[in-house]
Each structure stands twice: as C-alpha cells, then as structure tokens.
Design a protein around this nucleic acid. Structure first.
Lengths: 347, 347
DNA sequence: AGCTTGTGCTCAATCGTTTGAGCGGCTACG
DNA sequence: CGTAGCCGCTCAAACGATTGAGCACAAGCT
C-alpha cells in the first residue's frame, strides 16, 4: 500500500534497478544510438514497471522551455453567452496542444485594474512558452506591450493597429456585407438598422463598416445604433424601436445575443418577426439555433480559428519565422440561414 | 531593443546588480528576517527595475510542488450544451486558484481508448499538485485508480461507490423530487413521464430514483424512458410520444437539452406546452432561459460547486486532512420556475 | 607494435531557486 | 578579558533531467 510518494519515481530509481548511471537511463529512454539495445530494453522495462513519468519541472528547467501554452480567458467569457465561444476556442487549442504534447494553462484576462498583468507574469515566469490572447478592446496597452516585448503571442481577432502581431481572425467586414446583402437581395428589405457592438472593439467597428458600406452601395437606408454586445442592450434597443416600427424592415445585429434581446422585445411588443421585420445576427455559437424563431446568423468558425492559432503559436515557439505578409490569417465565414430573416426553418 | 531574452531575468542578474549573493537576493525577496532592510530595498528596486519574475520550473523543482492544478475536461464538454456547464466550472476553479496564486491546467478526459490516461501522466509528471475531475460514468476505472493511488483528486459529482474520494456534488435525488412534486402539487399533473439520462451515469440514476420515488409516494402514474442527455435523444423520445398524447400530462426530463429536444418536437407536433403538457428540465446552464416557452428547471450551482471543489483541493494539497464523514460535500439546488410547466414567465 | 575508429557507457556541469549550515564581526554580559 | 549571542550575509547542496566530454575496451588496419 504505497499510497504516498506514488509520484516520486525518478531516473535515479530506474538507474538503481538496472544498475546503470542516471545519464544512461535518460539516454536509453530517448533511444539514443550510443546506448546498447539490451540496456535500452532493460531500462524501458524498469521504467514501465515503476510507472516512471519524467518530472516536468526538471525537464523544463533543463530544456528552458515549459511545454505549455497559455490561453488567456477574456473577461467577456464570464458572461453566459460568451461561454460557447470560449469553449470552442478551448477545444481547438487543447486539441492541437495535446497532439503536440503540450499542456494548456488558463489565465484570466482582467478588465478590472487589479492584477492587470497576471498573464504576463505567467509568461515571464516561464510557465508557458507562449500565449493565445483574445482581446477585443481596440487599444489594449497590455496586448501591445506583450507583442512588443517579444513574448510569443498569437492574437485571436483582427488587430490592424498592431501590424507586427501574429493573429488569426475573420473578415468581419465581409461577413457583415454578406448578412446585409442577404436582407436586401433575398428578402427585399430597404430600410435597415444595425445594432452595433461597443465601438471601441475592432469587431464591432468592422461589422458596422460592412453594414454601412453595403447600404451605401445598394442605395438602401441604413441607420446604426450602438449596443454593447449584451442581451440586455438588445432589449433596450428593441424597446426604443417599438414606437418606430414603420421606419424599418430589417435588422442586422452585431451578435446573436443582442439579436435575441431585440427579437424577444419586438415579439413581446407584437411585431411579427420575420414577416414584418427580418433579423440577422452574428456568431452562431449556439444561442441562435435554439430560439423561436431561430436566428439567421453569420457563422464564426471559432474552433478552426483556435486550432490555427495554436498551430501558429507552436510553430513560432519551435522557431519558425512567419513572414510579415502572412502575419494575419483570415478565415472565411458563411451565412447560416434560419427563420428570423424569413428563410424558414433550417434542417 | 532587447526583443529576445526578455524572459531571462534571473536571481543571478539581480545579485550582480546589487552586489550580493544569489541566496541573499532570494531571501530578500521573501522578506527573510535575516536580511537587512537596506539590502532588501535595494534588491526589490533592482528586481522591479529588471522586471524579475521567478522562474516557475526552478521553483517547482526545488519546492517539489507545481503551484498548479489540473481541471479535467469531460468528453461531454465537446458538445455545445456541455459548454456552459464546463465554463461555469472553469470560472469557479480559476477564480479560486488565482486567488491562491495557483495555475490551472486543462487536461482532456478521453472517452476514446487512445491516450486513456493523459491526465494521469500530467499528475505523475508533477505538472500539477492535484486535479479536479468530473466524470459521470458510474464505473470509471481510471477515476478509481486515480483515487486509490493517492494522487490528490477532488471529484465533481456524486460517487457513492468511492467512499474514500473527496467530492462535491448536489443531491440529484432530492432535486428530482422537487421537480416532480412541482408538477403534481402546483399543476395537478397525475400522469408523468421521466426522460432519464444514460443509466450508467450516477446523475441519471439519482434523478430517475427521485422521480420514481415521488410518483410512488404521491400515488401518481410514473413511467421512465431512457435517453442519453442529448438534444437529439430528446427529439427521438418526443416523436415517440406524439401518438400517445392522451397518456400523460407531465414530463420530468433529466436535463435541459433533452427537455428542449422533447419540447420542440411536441410543439411541432401540435401539442400545447405547457397547457396540455407540463415540462420540467434540469441544469439551468443557459439554454432553458432562452427557449420559447422557457423551460422550468432545477438550477445546478456549477460555479459554486467548482469553487468549493477547488478550495478543497487546495486544502488537501496544503496538507489538510478531511474527515471521512465530510468527504462528500452536497450543495442545495433550487427550482427555477419558468413557462414550460405553466407557471408563466419568470421576471 | 602502434594507430585509428567505434562502442557503450560514466562524469560532471547545467538549468534557477531555495535553505540549512557556517562565518566574520559586533555587542553585551558576567 | 572571555565568551555567548546576534546580525547580515555567503556557501554549498539539493530538486530531476539532459548532454557534451571523456574513458575503457575491443576490433581493425598498417
């Protein structure tokens, strides 16, 4: 009954068993050519027998690398509807990391001033070899400093003001164009309103710009109302719109959560969605599929983005130099048509 | 422009700057009483100046502890509706961990045979000092071995067959009683059906037992149909029930996801929920609030459970011995009444 | 015989931090 | 005056894994 000290199997223990030096055992386990076959198999047998697992601190210290990467949790993930997004990211990142024998550490991205740089400490302590950061705020000094300081970072999102950063994102502007055009072309809507995210977020800016541009191109009326990405802000906007139901026939909402907020309010106010008003959302992280009516939305491939980001980070850590013109990877998005625009149920 | 080697500030560098030995610097930073005040402040200034952060591998190696804990991701979290649950857990765990200067490592819990014990390797490698594991399957050999081997583990859920394990869970049986009684007492339902989870999961068993017991106590008709916790299995059950609409007037469904599946199918089949049939779900991880009608459900306090689990794990790692009779912590649940049972909208 | 080449291992140093032991100089006390 | 004790520091060893250098021996070649 060796309940305690279970984890204390070291190279030395193996060495004692097989009668070799610690170094020989280490080399044997790595299949080094200078170690004899017979010794190797004896070492392997003993290692197996004792349940040896290399101590990660010892290895990390010697190798000067942690074999781990940090995933920085944005503060927005604390919100229920941010959950799905973050879990898609987490899934993608851990998959790739694990395929490469790499651990994933979760670090929080404080928006509170307290502990402002917790994740920077994590990086500087050598706990991780690099980090995947998803920050939305358009000027995040922490991110900027992180990138400048040469720490290995891959950003999730679009960061036009940080040309040197490696990032993986989607073309939100094109995505917004796609959504807006759908309302105009497929549903004949001519009087649109865009409920944007907070305009200090790049994503919010890009989605708004795509909307405005498309309206201008098509000669359609387009108004922008700023929200904050929360369901509640959608409700507030919705209430304001109840009196003005004659003034618009389509809504392009910058995320599904707000779209849900607006939609519920309009429905409760007796407005028929989608007959009277078409709604398109953004993200497709889960919510939009389960509402009634379900919400037509632009699918953002969060897991694929995360996988690519993790892959790029591992490449960078491994020494790959990414050419300047490839710094920003952009993945395609697609429109998922459901009921809220008038397209009818999606299979 | 010191883009590279940014992370290489070591005790030695500080020692060189202030003209002390490495040991003195180390002790100064820990505010050791044997180091003079003047030296301490010089050391602190230099550390600040150089941006020193202690190397975690070096520290871990010396201290024989990692300063990190693992959160084992159950395979079910890969599913969209598992996301919210897991994020609640993640939030709770990271909060507590960070408050205690502890990192959180994500490790996957494979249900695939491949890499069966990835998280056990993580523990044995000393990457973490303990793990929080949430496994549902009623006999998971890995968990059992983990617990027996003396590795520090706190389980999320109820594990009656592992009396020695430390766990944090809810009383699913009482919860199920609560839900069932609500349909009987508040809504006068007399012919109930329970859609259970897969019955090799303890949670599924407990929720079923609570249902069956309550029906017996109240002299109400109660039938059990086994599902698998997926929305799809809810749909399948729902289809089967369309022909038998006269035979029952209430559904107690073992999670919200299945409840949503059943409910959509019944609604699509022309059955009026909640007028004709009352539905109660389980979990309240997000979904139940946004459907139409919204789903009355039993709220499971995932984040609180996670916080407590993390706290207990840190205690154990710190050397606290938890008395046998306190091994299993059980948190209270509450019924959240919404529309699907007939109670009307929740504010 | 003398030299090279190769094989199979050991030695010793290293990564960065921590800590018990030790040491020189000082004060205080008997 | 001798010594006990404290102060403020340094020394050295340890945690566990890795790796270049080196060593003993054997075989092969000239």
């Amino acid at each position: 009954m060796l309940t305690r000290d279970t984890q204390r199997v070291t190279l030395r223990d193996i060495a004692n068993v097989v009668g070799l030096s610690v170094s020989a055992v280490s080399m044997a386990l790595q299949d080094h050519p200078r170690i004899g076959e017979e010794a190797k198999s004896r070492v392997r047998a003993a290692a197996d027998d004792l349940g040896y697992v290399a101590n990660s601190a010892g290895r990390a210290l010697r190798a000067r690398k942690a074999g781990a990467l940090a995933l920085v949790v944005p503060n927005t993930s604390r919100h229920v509807f941010g959950h799905s997004y973050f879990m898609h990211v987490l899934t993608g990142v851990t998959d790739v990391a694990n395929e490469n024998d790499c651990q994933v550490i979760i670090s929080t991205n404080p928006d509170d001033n307290h502990d402002r740089v917790a994740y920077e400490r994590v990086m500087r302590s050598g706990s991780v070899d690099g980090a995947i950061v998803t920050s939305a705020s358009v000027h995040d000094d922490n991110i900027e400093r992180l990138v400048r300081s040469g720490l290995r970072v891959v950003l999730l999102g679009r960061f036009p003001y940080l040309p040197d950063a490696i990032s993986v994102g989607v073309d939100d502007r094109a995505a917004s164009k796609l959504a807006t055009e759908h309302l105009i072309d497929s549903h004949g809507r001519r009087s649109l309103i865009h409920v944007s995210g907070p305009l200090d977020h790049q994503t919010a800016i890009d989605r708004r710009d795509g909307f405005v541009e498309t309206c201008a191109e098509r000669g359609v009326r387009g108004i922008v109302i700023e929200g904050d990405f929360s369901e509640e802000s959608g409700r507030v906007v919705g209430s304001g719109l109840l009196d003005r139901r004659a003034e618009f026939d389509g809504l392009v909402v910058a995320n599904d959560e707000m779209a849900f907020g607006v939609m519920s309010t309009l429905l409760a106010g007796g407005i028929d969605v989608p007959r009277e008003i078409s709604i398109v959302g953004f993200d497709d992280f889960g919510l939009s599929r389960v509402t009634t009516p379900s919400i037509t939305t632009v699918h953002v491939p969060a897991e694929r983005m995360a996988r690519l980001a993790a892959q790029r980070l591992l490449d960078i850590v491994g020494g790959t130099v990414i050419p300047k013109q490839e710094a920003h990877a952009v993945l395609p998005v697609e429109l998922v048509t459901r009921e809220s625009c008038g397209c009818g149920a999606h299979p």
